[in-house]
Write a protein that binds this DNA or RNA. Structure first.
Lengths: 133, 133
DNA sequence: CTTGACTCTCCCCTACGGGGGAGGTCTTAG
DNA sequence: CTAAGACCTCCCCCGTAGGGGAGAGTCAAG
C-alpha cells in the first residue's frame, strides 16, 4: 500500500510516516518506479509497536536501535529491559525534582498569604519571590 | 559597569545578560556613546530576582510581565500569586502524568522478568512492549 | 487527454534558554 | 601608536517530534 493508505489505516498523518522513515523506525518495504514508498501489511503492526514504545517513554532513536537488534535476528528483550530501567531512573529523578519545586511553590503561596501587599518593599520587584531566595 | 563585569559578578555569561536584555527582563540603565550596555549596581539585584523567579518555574516572558507591573508602580504580588497557582496546577498534572508512566514501567519490568526471552514471538519486535499495548 | 488527488523532496517553523562564532568597533595599557 | 581584550550586531545551532507549504512529478478516472 502507499503512504496515504497506511497513514489513514494507522490513524496518523502522512508527515509522521515519512518522518518515521527518515529516522529509521518504519522503512517502506520498497520504492515504486516513481519513487513512491510502498508498504506491506506488517507496516501497520510495526507502526503500532513504535507508538507503544513511545507511550512508555522510549525515544525514536532508541526504538530504532531496538528494531535494528530485532532485524539482526537478536532478541532485543535485554536491551529493552535496560532502556526501561534507565528511563525509570530518569523518571524518578525528574519526579523528585518536580515534587521539590511543587513544595517550594506551596511554601511561597503560604507566605504570600501572610505578607501584606501594601508593605511591599519598593526596592524589590516582588517580596513573594525575592525574600524566598 | 559594563556587561563583562556584571556577568562576572553575577557568576553568569555575557551571552545570558545580553539575552536577558533582549527578552526584556534586565535592561541596561543606558547605552554609552559607543553603544556599550551600562548597568548600575541594582542590575545585580535584578539579576538575582530573575534567577529566583526562574528557579520557582516562571518563564522569562512571565518574569518580564512581573517586572513591567512593578515598573508601572503597581505591586505585582497578586499577579505573582496567580502565576504561582497556575504553575502549581500544571506541575500537579505533569507529576501525575509522570507517575502514571512510572507505574507503567514498573508493570512492564515485572512482566519482562516473567517472560522467557527464548519464547519471544519472532513476528513481533519485542514482546515486552508489544504485549503491553 | 485532462484534471484532481496523491506523492516526492526540500526548506523553514514551533518552544526554551541560551551557546558558538563571524566580522567589525572601542578602549586601555604599554 | 599599536595590539590585546572587551564589546557590538547578526546569524546559525542544540533537542524532540513532527507541521506547513512550495514546486514538481505521478496515477486513475472520466
Amino acid at each position: 500500500m502507499r503512504i496515504g493508505e497506511l497513514a489513514a489505516r494507522a490513524g496518523t498523518s502522512v508527515k509522521t510516516i515519512r518522518y518515521y522513515d527518515r529516522v529509521g523506525v518504519l522503512r517502506p518495504a520498497e520504492r515504486g518506479a516513481s519513487g513512491y514508498r510502498l508498504y506491506g501489511e506488517d507496516a501497520l503492526e510495526r507502526y503500532r509497536f513504535v507508538r507503544a514504545a513511545q507511550a512508555v517513554g522510549l525515544r525514536l532513536g532508541e526504538i530504532r536501535e531496538v528494531i535494528a537488534l530485532r532485524d539482526r535476528g537478536e532478541t532485543p528483550c535485554g536491551f529493552v529491559v535496560d532502556l526501561i530501567g534507565r528511563r525509570a531512573a530518569e523518571l524518578d529523578a525528574r519526579i523528585a525534582e518536580l515534587q521539590a519545586l511543587r513544595d517550594e511553590l506551596r511554601r511561597l503561596d503560604r507566605r504570600a498569604r501572610r505578607l501584606d501587599p501594601r508593605r511591599c518593599d519598593p526596592g524589590l520587584v516582588c517580596h513573594v519571590i525575592d525574600a524566598g531566595t
